[in-house]
Design a protein around this nucleic acid. Sequence first.
DNA 1: CGCTGGCACTCAGCAAAAGAGACTGCTAAC
DNA 2: GTTAGCAGTCTCTTTTGCTGAGTGCCAGCG
Lengths: 341, 341
Amino acid sequence: MLNERNRKILETIIEIHTESAEPVGSQAISRRSQIGLSPASIRNVMAELEELGYISSPHTSAGRIPTEKAFRFYVETLLQAGEGPSQGPDAEEEGSRLRGLSLEEALRRVSRTLSDSSRYTGLVVAPRFASAIFRRIEFVSLAPDRILVVLVSESGIVQQKIIPSAGGVSQAELEQAANYLNRTLSGLSVIEAQARILREMAEEKALYDAMVRRALSLSREALKDDRDDQVFIEGTSHILDQPEFADIERMRRLLHAFEQKSLLAALLERSRQAEGVQIVFGSETEHSEVQGCSFITANYSTRGGARGTVGIVGPVRMPYTQVIPLVGQTARLISRLLESK
Amino acid sequence: MLNERNRKILETIIEIHTESAEPVGSQAISRRSQIGLSPASIRNVMAELEELGYISSPHTSAGRIPTEKAFRFYVETLLQAGEGPSQGPDAEEEGSRLRGLSLEEALRRVSRTLSDSSRYTGLVVAPRFASAIFRRIEFVSLAPDRILVVLVSESGIVQQKIIPSAGGVSQAELEQAANYLNRTLSGLSVIEAQARILREMAEEKALYDAMVRRALSLSREALKDDRDDQVFIEGTSHILDQPEFADIERMRRLLHAFEQKSLLAALLERSRQAEGVQIVFGSETEHSEVQGCSFITANYSTRGGARGTVGIVGPVRMPYTQVIPLVGQTARLISRLLESK
DNA sequence: CGCTGGCACTCAGCAAAAGAGACTGCTAAC
DNA sequence: GTTAGCAGTCTCTTTTGCTGAGTGCCAGCG
């Protein structure tokens, strides 16, 4: 579709535009590229590229800016070529800094680091408790009608929720129930644990042990999947640095979208099972708020197979040769961290 | 200092400016106020007010803008007059919506609600675990050298942290230690618990029970006060709506300040012990980033005396007659919620 | 046949100029 | 003490003209 020379010129246009955020003229390309063509010849090529939809000009007397189609084409070749070297913060050092933090704090920190070193907005989705391996459960009676449940997974994911309590259950009874559940369910995946509970409840009528009955009914409530992903977004103020969002109204909508973490979680959902670094443009989603954005993400996994996502968000115009390795390495860093935990 | 008529006119200036965000002219005041003075007379008064430092004009042919001194004077009279009615969301309804959520989720929700109904940025500081009443401790061995600690307070504050483990301690041993600590420390304030541990450790040499020794040393690590307040900030995108921050650079600095939650926590620290609604202007703090901002806050308390803060941040020009009651009622709402928990 | 220099043309962006409008401060009269 | 009137000031907006970047096309060259 695109011969070697045209491809090379398109690449140059993207590179220049990535640095300047401005339309690129034929002269600038000629100066920059090694091809050794005059501006006039390059103009001919540019006419072709425009014909094909890879570049467009904002107005007659301006240079050209790469279209999303061009960026898609560009990142696709980059992703196929492999990540290349990253110049992110030292992974070893970073890893040991995270080692002493709770999972939540660690993920927040990673999001921050991603943001700081990319100068875009950092994004981390925590693994779902529901897809982890069950480790411990604890009940604390807060009020006669409300029980606090704390769940811990094998890799250290902590989840708390409050469940209603039918009749007043004493703290001692709650502890018995927790003990029973910890003995019975520990080491199972949460899915298996849920299945196990249902199975046992079906046989429950045969059981006369009130404690077991209580434990099962509590745990069913406790393990119910509420499905709201924890998302850590750091460095949203960096979007103010991006000239493409200079319009206040635009910024407002984008910031607003970032505030609704559920929106981002939904957006990243579809790439959750993919391997390697993923790139999605806002226009490729059904959310108009993130038009003009680009999401660079990669998944990490914990011991037990639960998966989470890390990434950065910025404008479509991004230094992909730098951010792709950064995101890729960060995902691997977290995987290593969580699998060793 | 200010006679009744001048006070009334200043008030009118503030009201008009609060709505329009623009300099206020003598004619507008004359039209609006019930005083029945001509613009010319009002101009005389304005000259006086300017003399006294309550208003200032951006340039010769513009109206006057109330100074921070004027706003300080204004809110002081408002605060003394009492809160007046709020038209925030129905407290009853809101309360029952929060009842089934974990503390963290509830506080985040409150911050969101504050932001939504004020159209400014919502702010909630969680009570410190260290100032709460100890309820439960739980240890989970994550790796031979790392132990996850989950702490729960009387009012349902959950805090997790990871502590290093000297020698490999088995999960069974950890459970014994937790049992011992739960028996011994439950119901004490965290401060008391810390003191108790130190006291017992001093006597430790006399003790030959290895389990108790281990429990004490673990708990000392676990209860160590790390002092990083949890702050929930919601609705930061609202600051983009404020004309006073229209300058991009200004916005960037402000958003950046909001991202450093520790900065806000430090800022709110000094009003933590106060009663009732507090108002602090950015210029009254030592943080230049929040110049031009106004913080309206109030404290809430939990069973056991731990305190937290709720509030909103916006420009100095704010509809204080509305936001003061809103913040006050929200603080009372949370207090009621947490004291009944 | 592809490449290139030359040239006329287009159009955004900037700066200077002009005009309109909003307020003020002052003065003189009530 | 209050007010109408008026001259003066200064911002904001609009207009106009200019400059410069960049394009498309054409004719000539290797």
